[in-house]
């Protein structure tokens, strides 16, 4: 495993930790899109179908369990915790995420490497992950005061796939059997590009020492 991939995974982990910290310590999920969280849970379920059958490394297995467990605990907090669920801003979270699921499933059925259940579900998870942040980005734009933890959560999440792209370039250059990954690369590129606007305002607010606010 190269440093880019590892740093990417750590960013991903950090984003989840930051979000859980906000929810657990502040007992608040204000500004967080439940729809994005539902999409991520679905992404992890579909991608990690092989969790008990396809062993790659202890690291991989543990990370898979951590991502699945954290995704479900976030959903539990936002939907069932008596204090946290009151802070969920349902009216601002209006993205029609079922359309994303449907579109990604159709695309996965049409464009994939291999037509097997496992492979199509994996491809679906790759497509869905690329766009899963959209409900969250829409919600951020509507929120006037984005708190630091929420801003950092989205920032770490965006950095994660950015680092994965460097990992792909590195692996492409150093590994002989590392090709035919274009499907992942295109999706990963789109996923990272979606954050471009957010990154711009995040860095700007950080440099000017101002509170993060996205233009409407």
């Amino acid at each position: 495993m190269n440093i880019f991939r590892f740093a990417g995974d750590m960013m991903h982990l950090l984003s989840v930790v930051v979000l859980l910290l906000k929810i657990h310590k502040m007992k608040s999920c204000a500004g967080i899109s439940l729809k994005t969280q539902e999409l991520y849970a679905l992404v992890f379920i579909c991608r990690y179908l092989d969790i008990f059958t396809g062993f790659i490394s202890l690291y991989n297995t543990i990370m898979k369990i951590v991502f699945l467990a954290s995704a479900f605990s976030i959903l539990w907090y936002m939907r069932s915790h008596k204090v946290v669920r009151q802070t969920y801003d349902k009216d601002q979270d209006t993205f029609r995420h079922y359309f994303l699921i449907l579109a990604c499933m159709v695309l996965a059925l049409l464009v994939h490497h291999k037509f097997t259940f496992r492979e199509v579900m994996w491809t679906f998870s790759i497509y869905l992950e690329a766009v899963a942040i959209l409900p969250q980005l829409v919600m951020l734009q509507r929120t006037r005061n984005i708190d630091n933890l929420t801003g950092n959560y989205v920032f770490f999440l965006g950095t994660y796939r950015g680092l994965y792209m460097l990992n792909w370039v590195y692996r492409y250059l150093t590994e002989v059997h590392y090709h035919h990954r274009w499907l992942t690369w295109i999706s990963g590129f789109i996923q990272t590009a979606l954050y471009a606007d957010f990154f711009y305002y995040y860095v700007k607010s950080w440099r000017n020492n101002e509170k993060l606010q996205l233009p409407a």
Binding site: N60, M63, F67
Partner: peptide
């Protein structure tokens, strides 16, 4: 293996 595709990333 077909395409050498092994999902070793997270």
């Amino acid at each position: 293996r077909n395409l050498g595709e092994k999902h070793d990333e997270l």
